[in-house]
Design a protein around this nucleic acid. Sequence first.
DNA 1: GTGATCTGGCAAGCGCGGTTGCCAGTATCT
DNA 2: AGATACTGGCAACCGCGCTTGCCAGATCAC
Lengths: 207, 207
Amino acid sequence: MASTRQAGSGERRYGGRTAAERRAQRREQLLDAGLALFGTDGYAATTIEGLCARAGLNPRYFYEQFAGREQLLGAVYERHVEQVLAVVRRAIDGAGDDRAARLRAGLLAFVGATLDDERGARVNYFEMIGVSRELDALRRRVLGDYAELIASQSAGALGADLDTRMAAVALVGATDGLIIDWLSGDRERPRETIVDTLLTIFGPVVG
Amino acid sequence: MASTRQAGSGERRYGGRTAAERRAQRREQLLDAGLALFGTDGYAATTIEGLCARAGLNPRYFYEQFAGREQLLGAVYERHVEQVLAVVRRAIDGAGDDRAARLRAGLLAFVGATLDDERGARVNYFEMIGVSRELDALRRRVLGDYAELIASQSAGALGADLDTRMAAVALVGATDGLIIDWLSGDRERPRETIVDTLLTIFGPVVG
DNA sequence: GTGATCTGGCAAGCGCGGTTGCCAGTATCT
DNA sequence: AGATACTGGCAACCGCGCTTGCCAGATCAC
């Protein structure tokens, strides 16, 4: 009764942070650990104990945030995708009105952001595949986002007799193919050649 | 020395088959079991015991043929790829001299052979990814085969200022993208639309 | 028929990682 | 200062699947 304390128990501070802030902090630590281990050792070889050790956290806090390894992988993937997509959108927006210039800027930004984060790229293109139906569905949703982005940028320039989404899916596939080839091949090849090849393929389709 | 028996011990027959034949038979049984389980339950959810039960074989015979699950997966993949590639090559060879006709026939054959074998397709596009460096390398070798096939069929028609292999890799990527989308999306879409979309993308590149 | 070879089933040892509980140490609130 | 809440480490239980060995039954060579 005495002195009406600060609204229940959730407001107590620790290390200068509120409970929600601490939770968010631990979540970020786990996401970083996930990116580091999934992106180097791979998903199959990564254990929850290894993740906790890397994050400097007790296994207890892992289960506070995620139901299992798989859920963490999905969260790592989502964060990575959001980062790359943000970079790409910013590049397109800052590239003026010429459609060809916007296309080139967007592709260059995508290739750059992807290849600059090899661990994220490995998660995206290798570790996320075939793990579970949920993760495959998540990946497919992201594919839809990219397809929409391409369709919105080509603004009806796609051949009228062509299914817009399918064409966009194929273009994303071409991009992914080159990225994967670069990741698992000789990485000396300058990334401009990737962009040039993509422009040759995108060009006739997006007009 | 009496009666010079039939060259050593390896020639004894069992069930009308020689030792080598029996080995080959068991190998096929394991490959079939691998295709069935990897292609439906997935690689991660498939155990060696399950494979042996499906094949009707003792675990002992598994280790006679393969060092582990991963090696079996690779063998299943290789068999599947060879089958599809054979179908594609036959279709191209039987499509006359017109380059456009050969292209269409090859793509149609590839899409058909792939989508007709959903378990093989799942192995190819989902289960083979990110398992190990060896399997990723194997997959990359197959990608090289397809790239060569495309390059040989376009016969220098690829833009001279364009890296031939990279262009082919991108085209394979586009194909894979549409296949994966079909596999994990609504499968009602007629497969001709996939071929049409691919023709639109291949056309300007292979001439 | 007799002995050698092959087959298939059973099962147990083994290691590994997921998951949970406990406890001492530490920071915060009253 | 005393009570309370949070943290991190330790460890142990548990289930699962890999791997190997053994044995009874079946099949073939002589």
